[in-house]
């Protein structure tokens, strides 16, 4: 079993190399392929659990793996490791952003507009990737559509949306026996 410090080091590496989302692929490379700390099925089950809980999936998954490998200290090490490189980078970028904005030029404004448009494209691509597996359960397309309209169009508070749709989805899928 890896030590807390080994877990921290491995996840700092994951956190520093995982540019632009797709975090689970990097976790797979460093933790499953290179170090053999998890089996394929442990990896997949951990990933689906991390998607189930609220919060950023990448860091949830890291905490889950850390806990699995070395209890609470492992969870803290993995979570801190995966976040640390990006935290330092975004702090530096935030400082630079508010400094540069004081004397912004048309090129800088244009670059930011372009980057914002690109970021929308990234989130669209991510959505297209996660849509098929998310739409398989009973009533899923309707529940997803209701959540989308309530949240994105009507701007209803998210807690209400959950309080209505979660019991509905559970009721619809109560008698489904998984084949997995």
């Amino acid at each position: 079993m890896p030590s807390t410090f080994e877990i921290f080091k491995a996840f700092v590496l994951v956190g520093a190399s995982a540019f632009g989302g797709g975090g689970s692929a990097h976790i797979h490379h460093h933790i499953v392929t290179r170090r053999g700390w998890l089996s394929e099925s442990e990896f997949l089950e951990g990933l689906s659990l991390s998607q189930l809980l609220p919060g950023p999936i990448f860091s949830n998954f890291a905490a889950h793996i850390g806990m699995h490998l070395h209890g609470a200290p492992g969870a803290i090490a993995a979570f801190a490791g995966v976040c640390l490189p990006g935290m330092l980078a975004i702090l530096a970028l935030s400082g630079a952003y508010f400094a540069v904005r004081e004397f912004s030029s048309p090129a800088v404004t244009g670059a930011l507009t372009g980057v914002a448009a690109g970021a929308v494209g990234i989130s669209l691509a991510t959505l297209a990737r996660v849509a098929p597996p998310g739409l398989k359960s009973i009533g899923a397309p309707l529940i997803a559509l209701a959540a989308f309209i309530a949240n994105g169009v009507l701007h209803l508070p998210i807690l209400w949306v959950l309080l209505v749709l979660l019991p509905l989805g559970i009721a619809l899928n109560w008698n489904v026996t998984p084949d997995a």
Partner: peptide, 29 residues
């Protein structure tokens, strides 16, 4: 049984909320 039902319910809700998030981001951008 309930852990399967919760999973089956949460995935499409998360998906719909994410689609709403993309719409808001688009609008803002």
């Amino acid at each position: 049984k309930w852990s399967w039902a919760i999973r089956a319910a949460l995935l499409p809700i998360g998906l719909g909320l994410s689609a709403g998030g993309v719409l808001s981001l688009t609008r803002a951008a």
